[in-house]
Design a protein around this nucleic acid. Sequence first.
RNA 1: GUCCCCGUCGUCUAGAGGCCUAGGACGCUGGCCUUUCAAGCCGGCAACACGGGUUCGAAUCCCGUCGGGGACACCA
Length: 475
Amino acid sequence: MSINTVRVRFAPSPTGYLHIGGARTALFNWLYARGQNGLFILRVEDTDQSRSTPESVETILEGLRWLGLNWDEGPEVGGKHGPYFQMRKLERYREVAEALIANGHAYRCCCTKEELEERRRLAEKQKRPYKYEGLCRDKALPADMAHVVRFKVPQDKAGSVCFQDQVLGRICKQYADIEDFILLRNDGIPLYNFGCVVDDHDMDIGLVGRGQEHINSTFGQMLLFEALGWQAPQFAHFPLILGKDREKLSKRLHPEADLMQHRKNGILPQALLNFIVRLGWSHQNDETFTLKQMVEYFGFNHVGKTSGVWNPDKLLWLNQYWMKNLPPSEVAAALAPFLQEAGATETLVPAKVEKAVLALRERSKTLVEMARLGVCYFQKGVHMDAAAKAKHLGPESLHLLRAARERLAASDFSTAHIEAAIREVAQTWQVGLGKVAQPIRVAVTGQTISPGISETLELLGREETLARMDAALQE
RNA sequence: GUCCCCGUCGUCUAGAGGCCUAGGACGCUGGCCUUUCAAGCCGGCAACACGGGUUCGAAUCCCGUCGGGGACACCA
């Protein structure tokens, strides 16, 4: 591996499903890595013992796989910079913390959690900003007392830390506005701010791309890099994704925050990818991108600075766009499980499912809709909609249906011949095409809505079509 | 409240001082096409938050105001 290969990472914490914002962070990082011929590393930040679960890890990996975002190092694939689970390298964090204490950049803090909570409560009550103020900085600690390790922020009143953000530009914060933050909890487990810095260094990460909610913790991390004499990576902070209520998309308030919910809703991964890449990034006036194009065009210079609102209509539009533009075989493969769920009883022959996709993709926005519309082609018999029957299968149209049945029975059931047969019937009886087509449509699909009539009948096949028409004629 | 970031159509955005009487997309809407429903095609509505500068010239640069969001845990 060359020394200047860019290494970027996605570092989710496994405390639930993969959040849509996390998915976009992963995507941006992945695009950057692939575009630079770099490496994409997956790291699991599982130090929150009370909320992390193995199931969450699995869900997150599954989400990334669904999106097609493969990782070069991390869980399942390993790598030279592991372990890739933070809980598996606690000793390393302790060692770094001790080094910081030894060189005077950190200290063992004597304050108890209760004490601090009380101070916070009091400050709130008196309506003044709460500040930790380095309470225990220079106090000696009883040897057996449980303690946390805190970082010692430089005292220089006028001093400040800055970093050059790849999307936001130069950002600074005064030392006075940063508190002595905690590195290690009293059980020795590192906190995010610390584990993150140690790992980004250990894993030789060159660029950290994450959401803007992390801007403020970046200052503390910069301080840590300095104190440790390590070179800090570059940073890129991405705009947030907001819900319709303009608040940060949260798991609690916004169901659309769950990546896999979209899969259940019948959204194609390609559509989701396309949608989230355009939330905060643009390439001229382009709207649709294949993954390959995203890799080719992506860059932080065109990542926006302003938060974006989730727009379900556009997602649906993109989903239909990709249902129409991806290879039908690919869409068919994605559709099959939805047909199954919708109640298909026939064996799902790929070639036929593909035909169904071709026929239905112009009238459905999701795979769920497509399955609902298409399931009738994969069952025996028909679920007749009462209103449709009343409207189109009355006595005044039965003779047309009968005539069509006769004529169709003599057809070879190619699209062109079906079409010709129906036109012929309409002409013979001197009626509009609709008068003939609509009763047939209802007879064979049970609904007033379907693809073009010849396409529909061809999909259904001669045997099933005639059987359904006969059934309608019998009543 | 303190600190940080941001502010172009309802939404996502193009826009790097003159190419902007501000462009595209979704949505909404009028029409065409049409055997249903769609899809497609053509058209329409709709925005530079406000106030000061700088400049021959500002959506673009500076300052202020207002507005929005984020962070302020022994969560990440």
